[in-house]
Amino acid sequence: MSTPFYVSPEQLIKDRADFARKGIARGRSVVVLGAEAGIVLVAENPSTALRKIAEIYDRIGFAAVGKYNEFEQLRQAGVRYADLRGYSYDRTDVSARGLTNAYAQTLAGVFTTESKPLEVELVVAELGAQQAADQLYRISYDGSVADESDWVSIGGGTERIAQLLSAEWSPGLSLPQAVALGRKALGASREGTVEVDSLEVALLDRAAPGRRTFRRIGHAELAQLLAPERGEPGPQDEQAGEQPE
């Protein structure tokens, strides 16, 4: 074997991060919003079979952007983790924090040791008894974790989404308001409007009767929810920066 060229660790990490970021920025965004009714997860996803939003456990939801096969593998691992933990101990012992740690460790491990980082960004959301107790975690391709409580967005175009949501999000949104805001935010990320047919929406429902609070909101219900919210203004940050890389 010939002697490899020297590559500084800084350069190596930067190259990997650039590679992962490019892959993630190509995908469409997902926003997760706290609301009075629960936690609302909104994705732009024309496919009704390949989901970006999913149920992990009774009060824990999952959202992802990036390469489907990679985040699908992570989603299944999360379901297995939560179900095994809930079966070994009790259903109330499954927490988003523990799951987030497992995701972070896994992503960090792949980022530093494997030949290719995972091109994914994840959100793990746990529904609280009241809105103030909701927990939202954003986990990046390198395993870094951000802990949010109000809203979180992942994927390409998040700068414009962040600008819009920090201006327009407020505590105590109703379900239709939160869905409409989520749709508007996704539209803002690429200066357009997202058709109802290409929205994937789910709710961790604070008023759910049973243990399992995750509920998908189909296109028919979505059209109804969005109907009275007509006339929302277009994206307001026309001058916002270009797509990240």
Binding site: Q73, L74, A77, R80, Y87, Y103, T106
Partner: peptide
């Protein structure tokens, strides 16, 4: 996949059955 995070079966298992997993 390193010693931390999900143990390998969590990521590589192909079964949809909890009992088998």
């Amino acid at each position: 996949m390193g010693s931390t995070g999900f143990p390998p079966p969590f990521l590589t298992s192909t079964t949809s059955s909890f009992a088998e997993f």
